[in-house]
Design a protein around this nucleic acid. Structure first.
Lengths: 359, 359
DNA sequence: TTGTAGGCGTTATCAA
DNA sequence: TTGATAACGCCTACAA
């Protein structure tokens, strides 16, 4: 049989109904594959009659172009890889929302790795290899800087990767990044407490292994020093980011400095835990002790009392990262191999609520 | 020049350092591409000497296999698509964590669409087309059932899609799904309040457009009816999922039923807002009014007082969904075209805390 | 143990 | 305006 549609039909006959291909459509419409391709991609001039015939064939077969094949030819996947961690936390999840929004806006798909496998955490190399193997156009590295988990970031390694942008990491000149000025956040929180007339201002930090925790701590320290106060070690207690940790740390702090009258908690969750410890020991907020958090999670406004806190524009951070990455990708495609070194800093904002009111 | 490595080198010379290919490696190692392929995939018998030579070439060129090309041949991408929404909410984000964990465990990558573009929300068809175009092996539909956003789910449409599993939707016989028994959750919450001797038990529901909200409401209603109480309309107020909504709704409820002595809030955030309204009106929890939430977010244990709430095993839900989907994919590949119709129900658990203590 | 030929589904190039 | 041919990078089947 010389029926040109024979092949197409036999394909459609198989069990798992294989997607129709350009060839199938072409055969059914009685044109060449290239013509179908042109119709699909609206490129070149095509006679209206032909176009319609092709379109009908497409509809009839339920043809869906194969991105894999297209990407192979184009050497471009229009896909961004996102390495993240802790999306069940407020901060990280908001960042990803920002990333996703801007990515969608610019026409990118998202390839996600949450590095959250508890048993067998993948190494950075594994994750990166995976990204490269999938030929993503760019990478957003949204894993918090903890311990030495960024020592792999070196010019030599980066040269072998697609454009990559880092979120919230310490200054690495020459690498693209978008970071929140955590230090400024800590400083604003502390300065506010000073302005409110507080005399003894403690801090509950996040894990010191975290860059963000160290920065917020530094902000506290510098604000005190600039006001000629002593950031005594007795005024600082390290915690994890949780409410449970915050509660415990608050007890510790009260033991070390019973007459403390203000606390900068390095996260809203810590603040919530601390507030519980405070009310358990009969202290009133803000009369006896003022407290500031960090993050401005939606619940913070409904704590008892409503929590003064530091607001990070995390969605913006995600958006900006993708915008910059997009630019890097374009430049990269032009063939300039220079690593873009743009570093964007996002300034957080203090949100004042009842937990730090003057009394 | 007959140097077999010539081509490879010239490739490495280009501006954007194109990834080396099997050919490049083969040329450098002086073998055929197929041999390199075997080394990479550890298949067949290879002389150790050859293997080593190839491996060296691989290392020297920094060769990374191209998944696109491989997927094209295999007609399989080892990628799962996830359509989700609201990952900056506690519930959805936990679900995704579960999805990601199990996917990683089973060797799948994740292709994510959050449907979160506020300006230009993509249609279901767009999202699905995108998934199909990328030839994902399976789809996890984790978008909450709101309004009529699931009317597209029909056997005919599904036949054209890869295996797909739905999360948290109303019973659709014949379709694969994993749902939390929200009705049972609402029932447990209400029953607990009854058991605690509460006489007038109200409810603040989520948006009635949401399936989950309706189910929780139904649980409340049935529990009351089974106890021969009347679920008066005056006892129910609709809200959104937020604390702000909960606060407002609580005021409304107090206006409608001033002597109410218990409330089932359909989310922890709602509960938090309600608690604020209660303390603002001088009511004590649990003495004057008991309250139950839904979700068991980590902060709930630190509310003042700690919140009794309904715990959904959302990470498990995500895991189970991927497990089932994986099985569906395997079956699908065997050629059986039958749509797997497994429906898994996850039972939530009541977590009792101080907000519902007897007084 | 290794290599050759052909194809996966698409697009670019050049020709008709 | 359309089509044939040759990639894209890899793998399967079959040979050698």
């Amino acid at each position: 049989m010389s029926d040109p549609t024979g092949e197409a039909q036999s394909l459609r006959m198989t069990n798992s109904p294989a997607q129709a291909t350009l060839q199938d459509v072409a055969a059914l419409a009685g044109v060449s594959a290239k013509t179908v391709s042109r119709v699909v991609n609206k490129q070149g001039e095509i006679k209206e009659a032909t176009r319609q015939r092709v379109q009908e064939a497409i509809d009839k077969l339920g043809y869906q172009p194969n991105f894999l094949a297209r990407s192979l030819v184009h050497r471009r996947t229009y896909t961004l890889a996102v390495a993240a961690w802790g999306i069940d936390y407020f901060g990280p999840s908001r960042t990803i929302v920002g990333i996703e929004q801007k990515a969608a806006e610019l026409g990118y798909s998202l390839f996600l790795n949450l590095l959250s496998n508890p048993d067998n955490p993948p190494s950075h190399e594994q994750v990166l290899s995976d990204f490269v193997a999938h030929r993503v156009d760019g990478i957003v590295w949204a894993v918090p800087e903890v311990g030495d988990n960024r020592t792999w970031i070196q010019t030599e390694r980066l040269k072998q990767l697609p454009p990559i942008i880092f979120l919230n990491m310490s200054a690495h000149p020459g690498f693209a990044m978008v970071s929140v000025n955590n230090q400024n956040g800590g400083r604003q929180a502390t300065q506010h407490l000073i302005d409110q007339g507080r005399r003894k201002i403690g801090i509950i930090t996040g894990p010191k292994k975290w860059w963000e925790a160290r920065e917020r701590y530094l902000g506290w320290k510098k604000a005190l020093e600039e006001a000629d106060r002593k950031p005594s070690p007795m005024l600082a207690v390290e915690s994890n980011w949780t409410s449970a940790g915050g509660e415990q740390a608050m007890y510790q702090l009260l033991k070390q400095e019973p007459d403390i009258d203000a606390v900068f908690a390095s996260s809203d969750q810590i603040a919530l835990g601390a507030m519980k410890a405070l009310s358990a020991t009969g202290r009133r907020i803000p009369q006896d002790l003022a407290i500031v958090g960090f993050d401005n999670m939606p619940e913070a406004a409904f704590f008892a009392p409503p929590l003064t806190t530091v607001y990070q524009h995390l969605i913006d951070v995600g958006c900006t990262a993708v915008e910059n990455l997009h630019r890097m990708i374009e430049v990269h495609r032009e063939g300039k191999k220079s690593i873009e070194s743009e570093a964007t800093i996002s300034e957080p904002e203090l949100v004042v609520r009842a937990s730090t009111m003057k009394y």
